[in-house]
Design a protein around this nucleic acid. Sequence first.
DNA 1: CTAGCTGATTTTGTCGACAAAACAAGCTTT
DNA 2: AAAGCTTGTTTTGTCGACAAAATCAGCTAG
Lengths: 238, 238
Amino acid sequence: MLIFVNIVDNIDFQSTLMDQITQAPVTSTDKTFLRLRSDIVEGIILSGSKLSEAELSNYYSVSRAVIRESINRLESCYLVERKPNVGAKVVSLSAQGLSELYQVRESLEGMAARLAAIHMSDDEVSDLNELLKTHFQTVKSGETYYQEAGDVDFHYRIILGSKNKQLISLLLNGIYHLVRMYRVQLGMAGPRVTTAFDEHKAIVQAISHRDSELAEILMRRHIQYTRKNLSQKLTTSV
Amino acid sequence: MLIFVNIVDNIDFQSTLMDQITQAPVTSTDKTFLRLRSDIVEGIILSGSKLSEAELSNYYSVSRAVIRESINRLESCYLVERKPNVGAKVVSLSAQGLSELYQVRESLEGMAARLAAIHMSDDEVSDLNELLKTHFQTVKSGETYYQEAGDVDFHYRIILGSKNKQLISLLLNGIYHLVRMYRVQLGMAGPRVTTAFDEHKAIVQAISHRDSELAEILMRRHIQYTRKNLSQKLTTSV
DNA sequence: CTAGCTGATTTTGTCGACAAAACAAGCTTT
DNA sequence: AAAGCTTGTTTTGTCGACAAAATCAGCTAG
């Protein structure tokens, strides 16, 4: 009993789960979504605050339809919560939430590291080593820049290196921006900078040696450390 | 530089990531989304076919806005793919996709089993044992009903038992319906029914003994078996 | 003084219309 | 005959208006 027989063309646009990541924003909704997401991650729109469709529509000078669709997308990457007939609010950061998020992250990124050790091309591995060198220069010169952008870039490449589209989408379209939100808003400066670099180095080595099991273990440990570091900031700051 | 100071009330509706799961559909969009999702998972709307907004709007007797929002939600649970200015189509099932999906599933549900062994209340564990008994009756009487509904229910409870909201949302709002789509459309009948029951039993035992590590191992293995079973059907049927 | 009702106001949900982009068919040109 | 332009059609993107639900304020009753 196939109702939609007529529209079954099995058309193939080369769309994959990764589209949103690789493609540039084209529509007005795309741009508004990116602006909103950035404003939320950076804390310009405060965690816990209500998102009024009318207000945002006015502020970004787009129609309410555009705002609604943007909010929907934000909901699917866990940055806002919506309730029918009531509205949306930015998620509230909490020790509990951080813990649960990092538990998931540890599992998924550990897996990504394991798969990356198997599936990354030799070229990609060299690029990764290059990136590490760059980071080393940055760390040596004492810039804090490394913390956010550099770290994100590092994890970003390994996730992509897993070559598992489902995993990539889950992380990069999904929880990764929430991770960033915690990191940015809790402030990622401190003594962990250099330590993290050594951990990164060890992970890259494991991947270079194609030692997938070690890569997973090291990545999991690395994320555990980061989590402890963040938890501490959260409890002392609140 | 806080632009939205005025709207920062930190209002708390007890909304969580789990809302969509526990709450009944209230709005027209909710209902349409559920109908569409069901039609896709069940294969009434064929995998790979294009979703025309106008056509669906007409078919379900709702406005295009409702259809659009439904399609967006379907995209965030990986059931449809969208391309700007072109449209949406139902995902195509493939051996590659199945493999990648189950790789992720193995990791996440393994984790869920481990956490469930730790966090489930004694009452919930008893309920789980009860469920198992019911399934045993069903299997003994030779009904195939067990396959889909029973199995889903089993995994469902363990996922909820993990008590990790992030994980629960990732699985139940996210990939789980895609998993179901593969299962339903590849047909879940066959000799694995009774075998799967034994595996379920072993998992429940591990959880009952609060042996989290064993629970994880058994769950991962269980999902690996299922995956092999499905892969076989996919390659032989295509 | 508190709890609960009532009506006004605000906010979200739904709709149809228009704008803009993609698609399709036929024509032209090489 | 094949590639590319042109025009007409279809489909998606965006908008403003109306409907329905929730919120708020003031009032009433206990």
